[in-house]
Amino acid sequence: MNGRKQTLLAIVIALVAIALPLVTPDYRAQIALLWVMVLFAMTWDILGGQTGYNSFGNVVFFGIGMYASAVVQRDSGLDYFVALFLGMGLGGLIAVAVAAILGSMVLRMRGHYFAIATLGLGIAAAELAAGWEFIGAGSGMTTPLYPGDPGVQYLFFCYLFFALTAVVFCLLAWLYRTRFGLALNAIRDNEDKAEAMGLRTGLYKTVAWMIAAFFLGLTGGAVGNLLRFVDPRDTAFAGATYGVWMVLMAILGGKGTLWGPVLGAVVFHVTQELLWTHLLGWQRVALGLIIVAIVVFFPQGILGWARERWPERFGHKVEAS
């Protein structure tokens, strides 16, 4: 796809996204969650796909956002929307700071050590939150009621998350075309070579993770209000659901691409919504099967598969010179 077609596609999707919640009011909650999923996959891919540092711990930033927003809303006494946006912003900033600190510690590890360390971070965060009285410990926190009609509430979150998605998408579309994007890919393909060429690999990886953390923090801040409930293990630092979904959606669509995570998130979320209610009690079995099936039979993802099938459509061709 060339640039113009991609822009066109993005505009069409944006129009559908704006119209859809108005046309199908019954599905507003699901649509809002769809954008959350897209955000999950896109932000995960900044580090996981573009630099090849596969993190199972990005839920840490999501959970931080959730708790930050819930605490601000509980303690500030401000108006619902002011407190919400203030909390989101605060969550984003704290997440960035945490990403900078954690990044300087764990991003020097290579490969599976990084993956396991981040898995540990995610669960450690959940367990610590579950023991901290100030944020409700094991019983979690509730977020305030939306001041208005529940239908409008979901419409608000639909558009809020869509706006966030659009911002992140445009930012990444630009970022991946800059030399910073190239440097991230260089780290993915051969980090030793990148260092030998003088790239500041540690800095770039940390900044990439901080960008992901910022938007995950914002997302988390709002999701707490959508779900109306913050639980340390099941929603905020939900490593076994959100944490794995992020990875899975990006891989399903095609990691290391702009559109892949978007595509993967849409496919995954729609499938999930169709099947999940019929699978009560067996959902994690199904999730496990899906993970195994995808990584065993389809590790290159939808876009990776298409790229192998039609390399010339992706610009890989020999030119007569």
């Binding site: 599976h112 076994a240 993970i291 195994v292 590790p299």
Partner: peptide, 18 residues
């Protein structure tokens, strides 16, 4: 890739839990 086997066994672990 090591990450593939890591993720596959992680999937198995989620499956077996439930």
């Amino acid at each position: 890739d090591l990450f593939i086997s890591l993720l596959a066994t992680f999937g198995l672990s989620i499956l077996m839990q439930q």
